[in-house]
Design a protein around this nucleic acid. Sequence first.
DNA 1: GCCAGTATTGGCATATTATGCCAATTTACA
DNA 2: TGTAAATTGGCATAATATGCCAATACTGGC
Lengths: 156, 156
Amino acid sequence: MDAIDARIIRALQRDGRLTNLELAEEVGLSPSPCLRRVRNLEAAGVIQGYTALVDQKACGYPITCLVRIRLANHSQENVQAFEKKIAETEAILDCYLMTGGADYELRIVARSLDDYEQLVRHTIQKLPGIASIETSFAYGVVKKSRILPVRVEKGA
Amino acid sequence: MDAIDARIIRALQRDGRLTNLELAEEVGLSPSPCLRRVRNLEAAGVIQGYTALVDQKACGYPITCLVRIRLANHSQENVQAFEKKIAETEAILDCYLMTGGADYELRIVARSLDDYEQLVRHTIQKLPGIASIETSFAYGVVKKSRILPVRVEKGA
DNA sequence: GCCAGTATTGGCATATTATGCCAATTTACA
DNA sequence: TGTAAATTGGCATAATATGCCAATACTGGC
């Protein structure tokens, strides 16, 4: 990954639908090698995909919650059942294994407080071995970036 | 927004670089009205943009932290200085205003623990009116979805 | 149930873009 | 400096986007 690859990644994070001609112009290459670099980055897994960014509110999900969860015990069954349910539940967008007071932190979206309550009661609390659930609601968004500040790297 | 718009949004979240022909096929429309719907969704702000999803590790950011911050006081100057610095700092990807114990929760990426320490010492702790900083590190990712489960809506 | 008015659709012609190939250039290294 | 490998740029062709127009499908009023 050299400086041109880094510029390609930056540009495609800023606008994932740039045409190859626009991209080539922006990174200072002719279209042909530019496209080849993009395909290489995709094949290498550096670029994992492309997605449309949508307005949560306009799509009916005005509520974002960050939820910290502790498990009573980390038996294989409990962990597997928990992570399987996470994967299946579309309203749970992210789930990280965390250091510190909680085992997991989830980012969850909901259509309403009632909707969120249903999710907690019917999906999360029913899982075996949940020790605690601590919810914080986001009442404002200061920043929401999906652009990793890529610079030149050695290796890969 | 009707059922076809919902399908368009779902499809473009799954793959933001679908060609209009592929998209039209998938949502059951001919290319012409399909493209018009996409442009309308973009103009209405429902689709806010497109982005490439990149591998954090491959780009040199193996570390993700979730950081909870409290301010000592919420004077206009402190809040403005804080949020301005957040906006300027590329390694801070997200920042939410939260209910509960902390005022803000940040998602921060770093190249190394040293890198994270530098960021905290030189950027965050230097801001006026910081009462506390509580960092949790993500040592695993169970789920990382950027697909909002859009269904049919009334209105807009 | 019918009719007028409006919005939406599908098809087509044209402009733009992507893609694969090859020769030329640059880079790496002994 | 010489040689091999990697990368680049240009070109021809295939695929795709875009704007326009007629045809179709919805809507509300009577």
